[in-house]
Write a protein that binds this DNA or RNA. Structure first.
Length: 351
DNA sequence: AACTCGGGGCA
DNA sequence: TGCCCAGAGTT
């Protein structure tokens, strides 16, 4: 117990001097903390900051978010990835207006019940915005705790997870500053207890670290994983006619569901314009006088590394027909539609 | 328990 | 090129 007190003290005094400034930290209202936590899921802080500021400007309150269209929310989210987060965020805002009179719920169980909020996020919001003594567990703290406790077991196993959650709970139990403790733990994991080459010499809780004293922190956590990438080739066409551009809606189940994209085809080898024109004809009922290969974009999504061959179509004729939803949009509409990140990048390349 | 969902940072 | 990032929801 005396040990715990020293741990917290060392942690918090380090945090006080070493934490990074973040917009949601300067004004941690429940709404702002909520938005930040959703954006931060599987996404680095530096990436989130700009999105957060823009999002707060577009949707300053829960009510304004609930009143927006899903398309506008997705447009604000464009480029962040994991677009289901934006849809759940939107749904949760509506739910808060309906069930909680537009006021973000204070009870942990009510927070946890909102779509897109799991145990981590509920704990983070609860502790940071409401000073409830709720634990958190995520990438940084899993690594930190595995080292502090010298846990050898696979951290993805439920048994190990229970152990880690219990430890997380013990760190905030009966604390006056659970939110700061949780944020300090993550900050420590990010800055000091890093994946590679942890900076143990600068660690404020080194004397509490079982792995440092009796093992090897750099060998933890044990997380047997096997990401195998598959290489794909795709062709995308920007089809213009009468100053309008053809876009299609990505359907539930395929990539970027709910976002808009340009006509896109899976190809097995670099494609000539004739083959591509045939695909364009078959799928959209259109033919192009010329299909010009403009550039190639390499990008990775989840398990796939994709080489995207981008084409521009000119002299387009035919009647638009498609089994999936398509629209011809002018440039202003194109700007306001949520596109995939690579879709948006294609437009910038052309410019 | 395994899969899916984006995109970018970093060694 | 592989691993990771303030995970959640579905199968």
């Amino acid at each position: 117990m005396e040990n715990l007190k020293r741990f917290r003290q060392g942690l918090l005094s380090w945090y006080k001097n070493s934490h990074r400034e973040m917009p949601w930290r300067t004004e941690p209202t429940p709404y702002r903390v909520w938005i930040s936590e959703i954006m931060l899921q599987q996404t680095q802080v530096t990436t989130v900051v700009a999105y957060f500021l823009r999002f707060m400007e577009a949707f300053p309150t829960i009510e304004s978010l609930a009143a927006a269209t899903e398309m506008d929310v997705l447009r604000a989210w464009e480029g962040l990835g994991y677009y289901r987060r934006a849809k759940n965020l939107h749904a949760a805002a509506k739910e808060i207006c309906r069930k909680h009179s537009g006021k973000f719920p204070r009870q942990f169980d009510d927070i946890l019940a909102l779509p897109g909020i799991g145990r981590y996020t509920a704990g983070a919001i609860s502790s940071i915005a409401f000073q409830n003594q709720k634990p958190i567990l995520e990438g940084n703290t899993i690594r930190l705790f595995a080292r502090l406790q010298n846990i050898q077991g696979d951290v993805s196993l439920p048994a190990t997870q229970n152990l880690l959650w219990s430890f997380a709970e013990s760190l905030v139990a009966n604390s006056r500053r659970p939110g700061d403790i949780n944020q300090a733990l993550m900050e420590l994991g990010n800055q000091i207890c890093t994946v590679k080459n942890p900076h143990c010499i600068s660690c404020p809780v080194i004397q509490h670290c079982d792995a440092f004293l009796n093992g090897d922190p750099s060998k933890l956590p044990n997380k047997p994983r096997k990401i195998q990438y598959e290489s794909l080739m795709e062709a995308a066409i920007v089809v213009r006619r009468n100053k309008k551009t053809l876009v299609r809606l990505c359907l539930p189940g395929d990539r970027w569901a709910g976002l808009w994209d340009f006509p896109r085809f899976s190809i097995s080898e670099p494609t000539d314009s004739m083959t591509l024109n045939r695909l364009l004809q078959q799928t959209y009922g259109l033919r192009a006088r010329s299909l010009t290969p403009e550039f190639r974009i390499k990008h990775a999504v989840t398990r796939f590394r994709i080489e995207l061959h981008c084409f521009w179509a000119e002299g387009v004729t035919g009647k638009t027909e498609s089994k999936t939803p398509v629209r011809w949009v002018n440039d202003q509409q194109l700007h306001s539609l949520p596109l995939s990140a690579t879709g948006r990048r294609m437009l910038e390349f052309k410019r």
